[in-house]
Simulated assay, not measured.
Amino acid sequence: MFEKLQQAFWKALTPDLILETPPTAAVAETLLAPAVLEALGGADNLESQQRVALTRVRVQLQDAGRLDAAALKAAGVPGVMVLDGGVVHLLTGL
């Protein structure tokens, strides 16, 4: 009982750090449209994806060199923020 209470306490303090269930979503089950996925270098280039906010998706790429920023803008992504280590934030709205 104490462990459940302790886990609930830490989850309330840090909801994004303590997972109730391990992530089982495969890369094939994507949050991204097919055109956006192709602009990121294809499904095999994605390591992980996470919705960060209503207007932002965080994507971890295996090879950031395969990213096509022009194709992302053509696919309807108004903003792209590329960070070190293959991390890309896709700004999908205002």
Rank of each mutant, 00 (worst) to 15 (best):
V59A: 02
G93A: 12
K4S: 15
L19E: 15
Q60T: 05
E29F: 00
V59Q: 03
P78E: 07
A8V: 08
K11R: 15
S48Y: 09
H89V: 01
E47N: 06
R66Y: 06
L46G: 07
A35K: 08
R56S: 11
A53F: 07
A69H: 01
E38G: 03
A28D: 15
L19R: 14
G42K: 02
A8G: 14
A39G: 08
S48D: 13
T30E: 06
D44G: 06
D44W: 01
T21K: 10
G41C: 05
A35Y: 01
D63R: 02
V82L: 07
L40W: 01
G76W: 05
G41V: 01
T14R: 14
D68Q: 15
E3F: 08
S48M: 09
M1K: 09
V87N: 07
V57E: 09
V82I: 10
L94I: 04
H89K: 05
T30Q: 07
G79V: 02
V27F: 00
Q6T: 09
Q49T: 08
Q62Y: 07
V82M: 05
M81C: 03
E20A: 12
V82F: 00
Q60I: 02
I18G: 10
L40N: 03
M81L: 10
E20C: 03
A12T: 14
V27S: 06
Q60R: 13
L61T: 06
A39F: 01
G85H: 08
V77Q: 04
G42W: 01
V87E: 13
V27W: 01
A26Q: 10
L37K: 04
A75L: 05
L94F: 06
V80P: 04
A8D: 15
L19K: 13
Q6D: 11
A74C: 09
A53L: 08
A64I: 11
V27E: 08
L94G: 13
L31R: 02
A70K: 14
